[in-house]
C-alpha cells in the first residue's frame, strides 16, 4: 500500500486539485450555512463538513462516463463529480439558473450531463436506483460504473438489503459507499446497529466488504479504485464503509443533544480530513503552508463568485409551475 500511496502522492498538481476540491466543499458548505442563517436559503440543509475526503477521494478515481447517486447530504459529492458551484448555489437559492431551475433544491439536485443521477430525500432510496443504472450499463454494454453514496442510517432500510442482494446476484457494476458519519439524524450507530462494522454486512450478499478510514483521502482513493476496477471487470459490487464524522448537526433544527461537545472537538482536532491531507502533503514536501494559504484564499473567491452568480440570477417564471411534470 505504501508504494501506491507514494506514487499517487508524487503528482503535485493532482494532489493540489484534490485538496482544492475538498476546500471548495468545506467553504461552499460554510457559505450555505451563513446564507441559511441569513434567510437567503430556505427549506433545510444538510451539510457534509468533515466528510470531504470520501466524496473527493471516491469521485477522483471515476471517469466522466461513470455515474454517482447521492443523498440528502450530497453537496460534496456533487462538487466532486464536477458540478459547477455557481449553478449549485443558484439551485439552493431557488433560481432559474440552478441545476433544477429552482424546483429541486438541495435534496434533489442532479446533473445527468456529468453523471450525477441525483441527491435523494428518501433515506436508502438511491441504492435500488443505482443498481438499476448499473443494470443498464451491463445490458447496453456502456462500460460505466455507478457509485452509490449513502449513510449509516440507510443500511437499516430494506432497500439496502434488496439492492445489495440484487446487485450481487447479477454481478452489476456498482460500488456501494456507506459514509458512516456515526449518526442517522440523532440515532448513533452504536444505538441503532448491533454489529461493530457495517462493512461486515457485505458477507450477507457474498460481496467484498471493506472498512476504511473515510477521512484519509488516499485510503478512500485506493479502496474505491480497486472496487471500481472490479466492477468494470464485471465481477460485481463492493460495499465500502468509510468511517467519518458529521461535524454539524443533521439539519438546521439540530441542537445536537445526543452527543457531546468533547466528541465533536476530538474529531475536528484529530480527524479533520483536510488538515490530515494537507499535513501529509507538507511532510512529503509536496506543498508548503504558503501554497495552502493561497489555495484557501483562492477557494473563498470562487465561492464568493458562486454566491454572486446565484444572487444575480432570476427567479423561475411563475408560468413554469406545471412544466416538466411529464416528459
Amino acid at each position: 500500500m505504501e508504494k501506491t500511496v507514494k506514487s499517487t502522492l508524487s503528482n503535485k498538481e493532482e494532489m493540489l486539485e484534490l485538496l482544492h476540491q475538498m476546500q471548495v466543499i468545506r467553504t461552499f458548505e460554510e457559505q450555505v450555512e451563513k446564507l441559511f442563517q441569513a434567510g437567503e436559503i430556505g427549506g433545510t440543509m444538510h451539510l457534509c463538513i468533515g466528510q470531504e475526503a470520501s466524496a473527493v477521494g471516491a469521485c477522483s478515481v471515476l471517469e466522466r462516463k461513470d455515474k454517482i447517486i447521492t443523498t440528502h447530504r450530497g453537496h460534496g459529492h456533487s462538487i466532486a463529480k464536477g458540478m459547477d458551484i455557481g449553478r449549485m448555489m443558484a439551485e439552493l437559492l431557488g433560481r432559474e439558473t440552478g441545476y433544477c431551475h429552482g424546483k429541486g433544491g438541495s435534496m434533489h439536485i442532479a446533473d445527468l450531463d456529468v453523471g450525477h443521477l441525483g441527491a435523494n430525500g428518501i433515506v436508502g432510496a438511491g441504492l435500488p436506483i443505482a443498481t438499476g443504472a448499473a443494470l443498464a450499463s451491463k445490458m447496453k454494454d456502456l462500460g460505466y460504473v455507478v457509485v452509490c453514496f449513502f449513510g449509516d442510517g440507510a443500511t437499516n432500510e430494506g432497500a439496502f438489503h434488496e439492492a445489495l442482494n440484487l446487485a450481487s446476484i447479477w454481478d452489476l457494476p456498482v460500488v456501494f459507499i456507506c459514509e458512516n458519519n456515526q449518526y442517522g439524524m440523532s440515532g448513533s450507530v452504536k444505538e441503532m446497529i448491533n454489529i461493530e462494522h457495517i462493512a461486515t454486512r457485505a458477507t450477507s450478499y457474498g460481496i467484498p466488504g471493506k472498512l476504511i478510514d473515510g477521512n484519509d483521502i488516499i485510503q478512500v482513493m485506493e479502496t474505491v479504485q480497486e472496487a471500481v476496477e472490479r466492477a468494470r471487470r464485471g465481477e460485481g459490487p463492493t460495499l465500502i464503509e468509510a468511517e467519518t464524522y458529521r461535524w454539524r448537526g443533521h439539519s438546521r433544527s439540530d441542537a445536537r443533544k445526543y452527543r457531546t461537545r468533547e466528541e465533536e472537538a476530538f474529531w475536528r482536532k484529530n480527524r479533520d480530513p483536510i488538515a490530515l491531507f494537507k499535513n501529509k502533503l507538507i511532510v512529503e514536501g509536496i506543498i508548503t503552508e504558503e501554497d495552502f494559504a493561497h489555495l484557501v484564499e483562492q477557494v473563498q473567491k470562487e465561492v464568493n463568485d458562486a454566491v454572486e452568480f446565484a444572487r444575480n440570477s432570476p427567479m423561475p417564471s411563475i408560468d413554469s409551475l406545471e412544466n416538466d411534470v411529464y416528459a
Binding site: 455515474k67 447517486i69 445527468l112 443521477l117 432510496a125 441504492l127 435500488p128 436506483i129 443505482a130 443498481t131 438499476g132 443504472a133 448499473a134 443494470l135 443498464a136 450499463s137 445490458m139 447496453k140 456502456l142 455507478v146 430494506g158 432497500a159 434488496e162 439492492a163 442482494n165 440484487l166
Partner: peptide, 15 residues
C-alpha cells in the same frame, strides 16, 4: 423495492 427501484435507475439510463 429493488425491482421497481432498479427499473427507475435503468429507465433513467435509457432502458
Amino acid at each position: 423495492s429493488a425491482l421497481t427501484g432498479s427499473a427507475v435507475g435503468a429507465a433513467l439510463m435509457g432502458m
